[in-house]
């Protein structure tokens, strides 16, 4: 098959779920891999509060257990986005995407700041509501075409997937990752700890890039 992201270079079979590496998915996979390695290797940065009008600043003190928990969540988020980049099954893609969503919530939920927690809660609600169009869309794909495999879906023999169902999938991914609405994520970025918070936006960018390929394939 020649999909939207070029013809696959390599397949990895897990029963009915076949993972494939096409030039497009491979590039996204490597990006996620490099960033996950960076998160594992790098030391967290401290947030500085600069006092206006005076030559003074304070460093926010963050507990070790909080940092360890957030690093764990960031690594899990990196692994989840790696999975979402290469999976070749619509439902499996939806599951990986919701995993990315809950990991994003976890990265910021551990922060002891009321403002950040409020943002994390609202964002978590959207991520949870996002699973409805996501799983619903995948289920309608299965009913209209009789398959969930992207490799089968790229063949022209199957009935076409309705346009609104593709919209469901894209809307669901937008809910999980907030991909085009970075303004909405600004509150979450108040959370200290440089490499971990950036994992949130990178993972949502990656899943948004991938869902475009998924939708074009159908």
């Amino acid at each position: 098959m020649i999909g939207a992201g070029g013809s696959p270079l390599r397949y990895l079979e897990f029963g009915d779920i076949v993972i494939y590496f096409s030039p497009y998915t491979l590039a996204l996979f490597l990006l996620a891999l490099v960033f996950t390695v960076l998160v594992i290797a790098s030391k967290p940065e401290r947030q500085l509060d600069i006092a206006f009008g005076a030559d003074a600043f304070t460093t926010k003190d963050i507990g070790l257990s909080e940092m360890r928990f957030r690093r764990f969540m960031a690594i899990a988020c990196g692994l989840a986005s790696m999975g979402a980049m290469v999976t070749g099954d619509v439902f499996d893609f939806c599951l990986f995407t919701s995993l990315v969503g809950i990991c994003n919530v976890g990265i910021v939920a551990a922060v002891k700041s009321r403002h950040v927690q409020g943002a994390a809660f609202q964002y978590g609600l959207v991520a949870l509501a996002g699973t409805v169009p996501l799983f619903g869309g995948a289920a309608i794909v299965a009913a209209t075409t009789g398959t969930l495999s992207l490799i089968e879906l790229s063949s022209t023999l199957l009935p076409a997937v309705p346009l609104v169902v593709k919209g469901f999938l894209v809307l669901g991914v937008m809910g999980e990752g907030m991909a085009p609405f970075y303004a909405a994520k600004a509150e979450m970025f108040r959370a200290p700890g440089a490499p971990y918070v950036i994992m949130c936006s990178l993972s949502s960018l990656l899943i948004f890039l991938r869902v475009i390929e998924v939708v074009l394939q159908m």
Binding site: F91, G101, G124, L128, A139
Partner: peptide, 22 residues
Amino acid sequence: LILPGLVVGIAEILALSQIYLM
């Protein structure tokens, strides 16, 4: 497929209600 769908919902509700309490 219902089982994963159900479990995802329950799990996220659990985490969110804990965040709500805090």
